[in-house]
Computed example of a mutant assay.
Amino acid sequence: YPEGFAWQVNMDRKFLRQCEALKEFHQFLIQETETGNISRQEAVSMIPPLCLDVQPHHKVLDMCAAPGSKTAQLIEMLHSDDSIVIPSGVVVANDSDNKRCYLMVHQVKRLESPCFTVINHDATLLPNMVTSAAQPKEILKYDRVLADVPCSGDGTMRKNPDCWFKWNPIGACHLHNLQARILRRGLEVLEVGGRLVYSTCSLNPIEDEAVLAEVLTETAGGCCLLFKEVVSLSR
């Protein structure tokens, strides 16, 4: 992780809570998390934001943001330059679930950043936002877009054994269209020369390579420059 700002504890949450010898360490983690000094998340989930290479001046969109661990990471990257008190960039975090948006606010407000806002929309129909009320209105385009889309989660079978019993080939097929629509909308709001990262927790090609192939085929020629910076990640 850049500048060594990540630490990994090789023990599960249940053991950490129950081990008497680690009681003080557990309390330390809780207190530092509540004050915003520490954000606890899985190491693999930290990869997509790193691929975006967010800079303090970037306008960043997190399309499916809840519960907000990646969003918090994006905000930290926005504030990475200590010489800039308030960055000119902004992070816009969206989620279609209203309750999860409130959870995300609770997660991210610990960072006390003024460069952050939460919106509640269907990512496939994300409305255009304008930069000012002046005429003619200028549509907001984002320098960085994270599309961490809903997925079957079959790539998490090692930590979630129940996936072995619930998995079926139809699940990915049902999600494919939704994932492609989210990716299309992400590209529509992406600034020319910007970067979009598409990521899932699935290993199924129907949810990964097939989604990219479909959208690439549909936009052949007209959007080829946008796709130059598209990164696909299957976690």
Rank of each mutant, 00 (worst) to 15 (best):
M129A: 07
S69I: 09
S96L: 15
K99Y: 08
L61N: 03
I119N: 00
P127T: 10
D81I: 08
V91M: 01
E76F: 00
K70W: 08
Q107L: 05
H121I: 01
V105N: 09
Q107P: 00
P87M: 09
V60L: 08
E112M: 05
V92W: 05
P67E: 11
E112S: 08
E112K: 14
D97C: 12
C101P: 07
S113G: 09
A65T: 03
K59L: 06
M129H: 02
R100V: 07
A65P: 07
G89I: 05
T131K: 06
V105A: 11
T71P: 08
L111W: 07
T124F: 01
D62T: 07
V105W: 12
K70Q: 07
P67K: 12
P114I: 11
N120H: 03
I86L: 05
P114T: 14
T71W: 03
V92K: 03
D97L: 11
V118R: 03
F116W: 14
K59P: 00
L61S: 02
Q73Y: 12
D81G: 02
Y102S: 13
T117P: 00
D122I: 11
H106D: 15
T71F: 06
N128A: 14
K109G: 00
K59R: 07
M129F: 13
A66H: 09
D97Q: 08
I75V: 15
Y102T: 10
M104A: 02
D81E: 15
V130N: 02
D97T: 12
R100D: 05
M63N: 06
D82T: 10
P67G: 11
S83R: 14
S80D: 07
H79P: 04
H121K: 09
T71D: 02
P114S: 11
V108D: 03
T124V: 13
P114H: 15
S80V: 05
K109S: 15
T124C: 14
V130W: 02
R100H: 05
T71A: 06
N94D: 06
S113Q: 10
P127S: 13
M77C: 02
L74M: 15
E112D: 05
L74E: 05
A123K: 01
